[in-house]
Design a binder for these strands. Structure first.
Lengths: 192, 192
DNA sequence: CGCACCATGTAAAAGGTTACATGATTGA
DNA sequence: TCAATCATGTAACCTTTTACATGGTGCG
């Protein structure tokens, strides 16, 4: 039940088309949420039916139209209510943990290959999170600027710090995971 | 594609019925994987069709039967291959992070309520992970004992340490998340 | 003209959740 | 006899993934 709320959160910054949203959510494992295009267009339609957003058709060139969606008052209050609602803990389902649980069944080399690949992915995630955190603290992202224009300047610092904190968390998690995997490499090397 | 492998991993310890497996995977958000009963029975059937496990019907009382599944050689090699295969990074999809990204839209009190609930869940997870880690290091869990009976004693320490390491990771992640949420509480309290 | 990008959809399948349904056994 | 637990399934629904499908626009 979260995708609509994530979309509302983005549209709170400014109106966007389905295409723009697919770019944001697409491919990049890097942002806080990911969703393919095939999920986004139907979601937008349903949200419009429910009155959470309002689509406006715009002409592009002669015979191409794009629909730009704006969050409605109803959408904004739905979003605010959701943000303040404690959600049920999602069930844990981490395949790497399962693999690690059974590392004793395979040659140390195989297990180490899995961990090393994981470490390099997490290092990339760490870099990305730190970079984004810095950009937010510097108030140097497009969406944050859009959001700030609608709010009194004395709130801008707090907005930036709260958003940066999410990516600080991302980074901290990546560091913890890397340390865990490195300890795993050490354990695998230990003579039995 | 992971549920069958998780089931294989458990059945590597000893043969079990669908019922026993549902107990293990049930409800408890606490173990490494969770799955409802309605997923487990069909999965077992399919795995038997694929020759990964072998079911044996046992009589219970007069007119009740249970099917106990044993991992086959094919199942064991499938499991081992999977354990050594680096898996694609799952897309990030953490609803709390999305909420936190928009905490500036709601009263600090609402946001703090969400974080506090999260902290107490994570504290519980932390306790559980530490306890399980200790139990594994002490070689004091039923399944680990079963597994050790099939392996030379000089491997037992390594088995226990590798499995304990998974829960050490769980614990480390919980600690990181708690620290993150506490920093969030501080930021929310900061005057704008 | 051709290529990169803009723009929007549908369909099929897989994975997961919740609810419904049924009955036997064990022990207090 | 009553309740807790043992034991196994199906059905409907929702979410997510992968793939297919189509065409316009802008620029070099």
């Amino acid at each position: 039940m979260s995708l609509p709320h994530v979309l509302l959160g983005v549209l709170e910054a400014r109106p966007m088309s389905g295409y723009e949203l697919t770019q944001l959510f697409g491919a990049s494992t890097r942002w806080v949420w990911s969703a393919p295009q095939s999920q986004i267009y139907p979601a937008l339609k349903k949200m419009e039916e429910n009155g959470l957003i309002q689509g406006e058709e715009q002409q592009r060139g002669t015979r191409m139209t794009r629909t730009v969606y704006t969050i409605t008052d109803a959408g904004l209050s739905e979003l605010k209510e959701w943000i303040g609602t404690p959600l049920p803990i999602p069930p844990s389902r981490d395949a790497l943990e399962v693999q690690a649980l059974y590392f004793d069944l395979v040659p140390a080399e195989s297990a180490k290959r899995v961990l090393k690949e994981f470490i390099s992915e997490q290092e990339e995630a760490l870099d990305h999170a730190e970079a984004h955190q810095a950009r937010l603290l510097a108030k140097d992202t497009e969406l944050l600027r859009e959001r700030m224009t609608k709010r009194p300047p004395d709130q801008h610092d707090r907005m930036a710090r709260l958003k940066a904190h999410v990516f600080a968390g991302h980074a901290a998690m990546a560091r913890t995971r890397i340390a865990w995997a490195q300890e795993g490499l050490r354990l695998l090397d230990d003579a039995n």
